[in-house]
Design a protein around this nucleic acid. Structure first.
Length: 220
DNA sequence: GACCAGGTCCTTG
DNA sequence: CAAGGACATGGT
């Protein structure tokens, strides 16, 4: 067994963040389908805005695979307007729901498939890219997958860790095998990204300063 | 008013 | 492959 510096650093970061921010309890949703909807709606969009869209769907009793699959696209677009890119997202959301309904009947039925297979399947859907697919796998289907988003890439870059999404994913999944750890870690990284590791960083009080190249003025 | 937000797709070089 | 534009609302 060889101890890698990178692994130790990643593990250390996880524990610092957990201590600093506490347990995140992601994904904030009542059903697995709600995770899927949220994952689409939050693409390049603040969760604050997504919540409004989800609220609209719930108030219309539409947060259901079968119902969205039958909903008029223009009406759907109107409801999810606050989440931005709403015309695109309405089309994609309805299409994705239709296809999943046809192929599986419901989200839960996707759990029986191999992780690799579901990943491939999800990526084939228009509007589902790497991050959305990973989010669905981890948070809707409870598959042990690490979600790499733009915050993660930025944070790893600032820490001097691997910056390519597949490298990040490999490294993290090599350390954390447990679904709950993977869920927690991604949520914690988003929390750090939102509050400290921004494009214009808030280094004061950032819990990861001692690991940050940027803070030490070594790059950027 | 500028900039950013829990991306993805399509087109170009 | 990398880079650039389109998609759009709402908060700081």
């Amino acid at each position: 067994m060889i101890f890698s510096t990178i692994n130790e650093e990643i593990e250390k970061i996880y524990h610092i963040l957990l201590e600093f921010f506490g347990h995140q309890g992601w994904w904030p949703a009542e059903t697995s389908y709600e995770v899927v909807v949220g994952a689409i709606l939050t693409q390049n969009t603040s969760w604050r805005n997504v919540k409004k869209a989800i609220k609209n769907l719930k108030e219309n009793n539409l947060l259901d695979l079968k119902k969205i699959a039958e909903t008029d696209i223009d009406f759907l677009a109107e409801l999810i307007k606050p989440s931005g890119f709403y015309r695109q997202k309405a089309i994609r959301l309805k299409n994705i729901s239709l296809v999943i309904l046809k192929d599986f009947g419901n989200i839960e039925n996707m759990r029986n498939m191999d992780t690799e297979k579901v990943m491939e399947y999800l990526l084939s859907l228009n509007g589902v890219g790497c991050e959305t697919a990973e989010s669905i796998l981890l948070y809707a289907l409870d598959k042990p997958v690490f979600v790499v988003d733009s915050y993660t890439i930025r944070i790893f870059g600032r820490m001097g860790l691997p910056e390519k999404r597949e490298d990040i994913k490999k490294n993290v999944m090599n350390i954390f095998k447990d679904v709950n750890d993977l869920k927690e870690f991604h949520a914690l990284l988003v929390e750090l990204g939102k509050n400290y590791c921004k494009k214009i960083p808030v280094c004061n009080e950032c819990p990861l300063n001692e690991y940050c190249r940027y803070y030490r003025g070594e790059n950027e």
